[in-house]
Design a protein around this nucleic acid. Sequence first.
DNA 1: AAGATTTGCTAACACGTTTTAATGGATGAG
DNA 2: CTCATCCATTAAAACGTGTTAGCAAATCTT
Lengths: 349, 349
Amino acid sequence: MGTVSIRDVATRAGVSPGTISNVLNRPERVAPATRERVLRAIRELGFVRHGSASTLRAGHSRTVGLSVMDIGNPFFTDIAAGVEEAASELGYAVILGNSAGSRAKEERNLLVLAEQRVRGVLITPTDDDPARLDALRDRGIKVVLLDHPAHRPDQCSVTVNDITGGRLAVSHLLERGARRIGYLTGPRTLRQCVDRGKGAAGAVAAAGLDPDTVLDPIETPAMTAKYGQQAAERLLASGSLPEAIFCANDLLAVGMLRGLLQAGVSVPGDIRLIGYDDIDFAAASAVSLSSIRQPTHQLGRIATELLLDECDHPDTHAHQQVVFQPELVIRESTGGRRDPAEPRPEETR
Amino acid sequence: MGTVSIRDVATRAGVSPGTISNVLNRPERVAPATRERVLRAIRELGFVRHGSASTLRAGHSRTVGLSVMDIGNPFFTDIAAGVEEAASELGYAVILGNSAGSRAKEERNLLVLAEQRVRGVLITPTDDDPARLDALRDRGIKVVLLDHPAHRPDQCSVTVNDITGGRLAVSHLLERGARRIGYLTGPRTLRQCVDRGKGAAGAVAAAGLDPDTVLDPIETPAMTAKYGQQAAERLLASGSLPEAIFCANDLLAVGMLRGLLQAGVSVPGDIRLIGYDDIDFAAASAVSLSSIRQPTHQLGRIATELLLDECDHPDTHAHQQVVFQPELVIRESTGGRRDPAEPRPEETR
DNA sequence: AAGATTTGCTAACACGTTTTAATGGATGAG
DNA sequence: CTCATCCATTAAAACGTGTTAGCAAATCTT
């Protein structure tokens, strides 16, 4: 019943506690025979190493933190899956925090992670303020930014070019003839929303048109399907519909689509619609959704590999800002029919 | 730079380390004036309590583990959101593990949780074997089963009646005239799949028909959209289509739907389709999906409250097996049109 | 065969916090 | 004024592991 400690194992195996520690952490330093004996004792006693004691003594743990903005968004769960995969390959556990877009919640989560003395943190920050992250670094906790560019050269980040993404989406809508385009965006404090908007404006300008008259931004408090549908209702109530809508993510797009269809608006007949992220459901939604694909799983995986490289090999580690390129996926919601054969996006470092 | 410890704070505030500990853990035992002085010192030095040291000394942590079968399934992320919400209200952090349906992975995750000396574990087990869970209990880690009935009376569990759910789904299909019904299910090792199948058979029997001739089970290796679509392809290749299909969860249903539509099969015209879980996307899919709704968020919340009650008040804690009742939601995929007004499901304890 | 090196292990301390019993000072009762 | 009571605080002993210096034995070098 009472928890079995390293000394119990030592007694059983007829060696000293230090040897047990060696077997666990530097097996090569201990003779094969003793090692076997110790491992057997561990099995027989059902010994489980006390992570806290280990962390306390060693000064660092075998865990990393992951802070995402919305655990309900498949974009982030895909990332989380990539993170978890890479972390567990390297023997690290992942503590997941959901900031739900709230800065206060993010702060609380980071405090918990700091208390747990995680080795490092992967974070999709809710805003641009580098102060909190620098505070973590000062505590010796490595930080890698996920889907957000590093604000200093000695920091790693993994992003997807959102300006390109916005450009791809809106170029596509322009190509299909739209001249009044709504931009359904989340809070302007989110870099992703701003950048995608910039890309959108860039596409309009590149077509020789005036962004201010072509693009019509609609802002929502959060990037969820619920707010997408609300936006649809407001739009319908306003009476003036654009010819196309670019949604800053697929959840907004799914909600918007639902709102439009319920009101009898035809997509893509009356309004063309494009989303962002290419979540699994985009292809399965009422009208299959054109979208901008991002290499989500890779995003999580690479970020984790960078973080753990920095943790385990701080001397040889080279800081990197990895930028992936997004890819346009055309489906019914923009009237498109181009075969969505799927070459993997190029990675540029 | 170097981490600031409780003694540094003590020195600064001109008190002993023990007093700092009291301020943090039993503020009422320390005079208001000193408390203020200590809190100021903590702020000024940027002290963050060392969770591991605390855990080591106190014998237990302020964290709980959550082990789910598929983090990519909105059903589980909804649960996770409920868990996280309830846990953080009570000052606990959540360590999330994704077993991805693999027993080995689940075992690895549980080991990590045991090493971290989590206070308790919320788990949706991948199989019925109680051994691993009993092992945790023997270590003093409380266990609450999520979406799985307790196998002993001194254990808490929170479930939704899956037999009822299966019955609701198939009764509905029978009502709509179907007499050959496919049951698209995940692995038969999953209790959920078995129970929903039982409910389905029960509904057929209750209608005076023979389950063996009416129901046609199709098993997949995992309950994902991918396998749902594969099943559709196999079904189409076989040439003999049932009149309706009951899918053991919405991901399977979404995949199945996609596969059918791509092949030009009309839903609900040629085949009626119903899923399970009523994830957000069910209402938004190509043909909106009839489904069985479960109170997911509540599931996570109640389970967490039970667990933490057991942790914090072991003496007064009463073990409970909470059973929720699922609810039929009719949409286009079964040709239904009943208004989906949504009374909340009843809770029965 | 004697020194030089390597190998395999031990003993003891350190990590930062919580907790216990003990201390000192203030307060109130007699 | 003394004594008992109470309160805020302290000092020191844990908690279970990792690490370091060091020692004995085994192996290698001339």
